[in-house]
């Protein structure tokens, strides 16, 4: 293990490390801690210039109540859910199929199809913006959740296919050969042999894509407007316009908007990190 485990160090070094840890963490999360404190402060603290002191009163219920009952926030949250969940299902499904094809079969254009997905996944969004917006308008899907979902599914398929294909490549190929010898149809091999083995990859991808899509801002701005279909990342800007300079409400709103992926991360941490770091180790 590197660096040398702390238990092998001197007693003083151990104590220093133990006290350094929480200090470093507080420093690292300082901006976030500040916002959390902002969100329970009363409005009067900001008008009186008490930005960074202790809250003069504890207004958690009040501030978050405002966000939930007196703004479009719940609406935006619902939109985000209705955009994110179908995208996750769509992208994971498509990439399971494509990943299986690219991972198992040897055919001439295999690597080129694979590279198309990989390269497309790296492309800057901006080169897609004008045509995709146009396409969405032409299909009558501008400012709908469906329009956003369809595009997200297509774009995320690039990354997901890369992920799935690499995962399937690492599976023991003998299993598939054995099934073929038994004369099992190819789609049955996919469904009964490969899919059960892919469960960890599916879980990891789902949490990753959930986070990516929930946090998307660019496409939300390009393809939607207004509370009927905008997700929360875009909604928070109008929310902030509504409560200009009301830092306590803006902070509470931001925390609410950020919460679902954060909960997802803490609940599915193992899968999340496994997904992010696939390929970081040979």
């Amino acid at each position: 293990m590197f660096p040398t485990p702390i238990e092998k160090g001197s007693r003083t070094w151990q104590l220093t490390y133990q006290s350094l840890l929480p200090m470093a963490l507080i420093l690292w999360l300082l901006p976030l801690i500040a916002v959390a404190i902002f969100s329970v402060k009363p409005a009067v603290d900001f008008t009186q210039g008490n930005y960074w002191g202790m809250p003069s009163s504890f207004e958690l219920v009040n501030n978050y109540g405002q966000v939930f009952f007196n703004s479009d926030m719940p609406r935006y949250m619902l939109n985000s859910m209705l955009i994110t969940v179908p995208t996750v299902i769509g992208a994971v499904t498509l990439s399971c199929l494509a990943g299986f094809a690219l991972g198992i079969y040897k055919f001439k254009s295999n690597i080129w199809v694979f590279f198309m997905f990989v390269a497309g996944n790296f492309v800057p969004f901006q080169i897609l913006m004008v045509p995709v917006r146009d396409l969405t308008l032409d299909m009558g899907l501008y400012n709908t959740k469906t329009g956003l979902v369809l595009f997200h599914v297509a774009f995320q398929t690039g990354f997901c296919t890369l992920f799935m294909r690499n995962f399937i490549r690492a599976l023991p190929f003998q299993l598939i050969e054995a099934a073929r010898v038994e004369g099992i149809a190819e789609w049955k091999i996919f469904w009964y042999v490969v899919i059960p083995l892919m469960k960890p990859a599916i879980a990891a991808l789902s949490v990753l894509i959930f986070t990516f899509i929930w946090n998307d801002y660019f496409w939300a701005v390009v393809l939607t407007q207004g509370p009927e279909s905008q997700p929360v990342t875009a909604g928070i800007t109008s929310f902030n316009a509504q409560f200009r300079a009301a830092y306590h409400l803006m902070s509470a709103g931001s925390i609410v908007a950020a919460l679902p992926p954060v909960l997802m991360f803490f609940a599915m941490q193992k899968h999340f990190i496994a997904g992010l770091t696939l390929g970081a180790v040979k």
Binding site: L97, V153, T157, G158
Partner: peptide, 14 residues
């Protein structure tokens, strides 16, 4: 198996 993914990807990205 590839058809749906390729269709989507070509239509919206390529």
């Amino acid at each position: 198996f590839l058809a749906p993914a390729i269709l989507f990807f070509v239509f919206y990205v390529v």
